[in-house]
Design a binder for these strands. Sequence first.
DNA 1: TTTTGAGTTGTTCGA
DNA 2: GTCGAACAACTCAAA
Length: 474
Amino acid sequence: MDTALVWFRRDLRVHDNAALWHALNGARQVHCVFVFDADILDALPDRADRRVEFIHGSVAALKAALENRGGGLHVLAGSARRLIPRLARDLGVEAVYAARDYEPAAIERDSHVASELASAGRWLELVKDQVIFEAPEILTAQGKPYHVFTPYKRAWLAKVNSSHLSACPATEHLDHLVRPDTRAMPSLVDLGFCPTNLAELGIQPGEAGGRARWDEFQSRLDRYREIRDFPAVKGPSYLSVHLRFGTVSIRELVRFAFEKGGEGAETWLSELIWREFYQTLLASYPHTTRHAFQARFDALTWPNPPGHFEAWREAKTGYPIVDAAMRQLNQTGYMHNRLRMIAASFLVKDLHVDWRLGERNFAEKLIDYDLAANVGGWQWSAGVGTDAQPWFRIFNPVTQSEKFDPAGTFIRRYLPELTAVPDKFIHAPWTMAPAQQTACGVVIGRDYPPPLVDHAQARAATLALYRAVPGAAA
DNA sequence: TTTTGAGTTGTTCGA
DNA sequence: GTCGAACAACTCAAA
């Protein structure tokens, strides 16, 4: 092949990049492009969006990295479905290479681009990059996708070997990279967005940012299993945003987990397999973005009581662990995984709000937002997903708080108005007698909201609600 | 085809 | 405060 175009999307790195590697090996001249896709950006509700800033920084770093290697990056803004076929024509390339994306909107976009290219005698070459195994690669003996995680994980582990984890040696044909005529790139403001507090939050975009977090996490990996559930502690890898935008390589992470071994590495690898499980489920069942995996739950009418969703979103539920979690989300665009479960369970099973509203709220705010993982997580929390036994999975927000934030450290970090509340009452401040409230200067109803609902009552109502669904256990 | 073992992340109750 | 059992009998995946 003479010339090819690499279209970067959520694989914003040079190292171990499958699309780039295939293009460099398949064509003598390789152009590169990134498109700030108006079809996506125009739909964002807020002009200050950390994700756009993260992508912008990562694209700038990618461009510099390609230029350092003698190439470059076309950076365009507009509708990708129109711009990619046009650029392919202008550059006269034979093929466009890109990493395969499994989200329904991306599949639709790519098939549109593929047919546009085909009508001009070119083609779109989609390659695997963001997962170790795509949906069709891990199937049951009956040739169907797994619906339960543990058997999926067993099959995944039985199949994986070093050939799936080896890096793409992209350095081999770097002289094939073509330097574009124009080197300019639109600024964040040119794109219609404004800067956020990304740097202040310690989030560094690009491969360098991913590498720095990865290096830092390696020393904590051994303790991952014991500390990952405590939001006040630095337990997680914080690599989710880098996995979302491909500023780290999943192959490299999985390889390291195997080489390292031990409890921490095993637990973390399990989380990476969960990521693929949910990607698989979305690819196999795209309707689950809006519909319950267990179809009978689509018949469930969510009460959505007035004001409940808003109180949850604005961190005014009166349950400190939930409000602290929501403030973390609102202030930083991130929420600890344990808190995502607690907040989701609370919205659905205590406030009786449709899980889709919560899913959409997370979609707007999470910097590491991933459609597959978010939908999978929310359906799991709502008990309408692949999980089998919803009745027992009603989190008690006070018990969870006592268990995973025992000293109230995380709560006080995000709810400074509760600093003076004694440890004994930090998880349920409304249980303080009036004299105690006065003594510590936190009066419920004045300084902090009373609990929006009574958990025991809400739990009973949830059980009744789910029991009433046709086909559910009587 | 039928059977069998097993299932991320819990909670509540009563001894 | 701690512990084990009950929750209610479901669905999946493999033998």
